[in-house]
Write a protein that binds this DNA or RNA. Structure first.
Lengths: 230, 230
DNA sequence: ACCTGAACACCGTTCAAGT
DNA sequence: ACCTGAACACCGTTCAAGT
């Protein structure tokens, strides 16, 4: 009758690939990329190093799997609407996933730039590209248009968490942003005329709004280049 | 009189920060990021580990310095022309630098997404943003327009070297691209309708041309959103 | 001021041995 | 089939000691 109460750190479930990946995501969320270690993972899962290698080939595969699991969740919650609205929703979903998991930005970019054979890259391109196609963009423009959207989304979302200091958890976001902005402002105006001038904008804006303005800018480019003769 | 002939591996120059950075870039070019090791560097420079730490704080600083030195060189060769032409030239300069130094893509993205306080991020934003300003974009659009350009350029250039298999040196580019394209094509058309359909485009295109088409697409978006009332 | 190189703490990975 | 955990090779970094 009282058998259901889980005892503190006793391992009741058996070790599975899914549990390992979930624990990896937890560590990454809590400590950042350097916090994911086989030793800590081993401790957290109350097992030995070899047990993990039974389910996962190596650390690279584990990182990719962790990235993929968070990505899939972020792309799952989709709504309807026009192609433009869907693209904004997908973009915002990725933006928020990166906001929740700051390690994700670097990881997704790295995956695109180093591991084009995995399923991470096609997943992102598919989520965006399907809607680009639905916009009516002719086939020859599919890849370029999708690339522009994907790379803007990942890059801007990544820089957003960077400017918020989210890479190291436990930092006051607006205070960090203030200090980054102050440093850009303090740059030599001769060597960095633009960076020092734009510093103020980094501070005084709404993150989401600015991010979505960029999405709309790229969408406007797609429309102008490919759909203007309508 | 015959004192000038340098003997084979004898160290004639003294160790400097510049020589260390140059050696780091050579190692990165030859072996990729995992090839840069303090032990190999120590051997290459015929010195001890401590000597390097006298000139450089740690490996992170060394990587940032290597990135910065290549970036500065890439941004140095600038020509004239209209703001649009200058933006295309800057973009192409970064594209080619990443093509020559495949490790640079990940490194630049990482720098933007993790180290906003350094000079790498402001350098890139300045090179692009100065020309965005020259286009006549109003101040409130500076940051968004520059972000869209910067992130597209770094992301697309990075993916270009990734699809060419340049991450691991010594690979036949077109053969690798063929195999990546074939894998995208082989993806389940139900789960990845877009990726499987666009796979052919990955193979049959001119890298530079496709890259520049993306730059022009973002430029068109900037014009439409900010300069259309002219 | 600048360099040497052994030593330290830590890491990913392997593998004989267990069940 | 799945897990244990000691051992291995390798890494970034430190530091007493040299010049």
């Amino acid at each position: 009758m009282a058998t259901t109460r889980a005892s503190r750190s006793r391992r009741t479930d058996s070790l599975t690939r899914e549990r390992i990946i979930a624990a990896a995501v937890e560590l990454l969320d809590a400590q950042g990329e350097s916090g994911l270690t086989f030793r800590v993972l081993t401790q957290r899962l109350a097992t030995g190093a070899g047990a993990i290698y039974w389910h996962v080939a190596n650390k690279e595969e584990l990182l990719t799997a962790a990235t993929e699991s968070v990505l899939v969740a972020a792309l799952a919650r989709e709504v309807g609407g026009s192609p433009e609205e869907e693209i904004r929703a997908v973009a915002l979903g990725l933006f928020e996933a990166i906001d929740d998991h700051p390690w994700l930005a670097t990881q997704l970019s790295t995956e695109l730039a180093r591991n084009p054979r995995g399923t991470v890259a096609p997943r992102i391109f598919d989520a965006v590209g399907r809607r680009v196609r639905a916009l009516g963009v002719p086939e020859r423009g599919w890849f370029t248009a999708s690339s522009a959207l994907v790379h803007y989304v990942l890059g801007a979302a990544g820089q957003n968490v960077a400017n918020a200091g989210a890479a190291d958890p436990g930092i006051d976001r607006s205070a960090f942003l203030d200090s980054v902005s102050a440093e850009w402002e303090a740059l030599d105006a001769d060597d960095f005329p633009f960076a020092s001038a734009v510093a103020g904008q980094m501070r005084d804006h709404d993150d989401r709004e600015q991010f979505l303005a960029g999405v709309d800018l790229v969408l406007a480019g797609i429309t102008t280049v490919h759909l203007s003769g309508e």
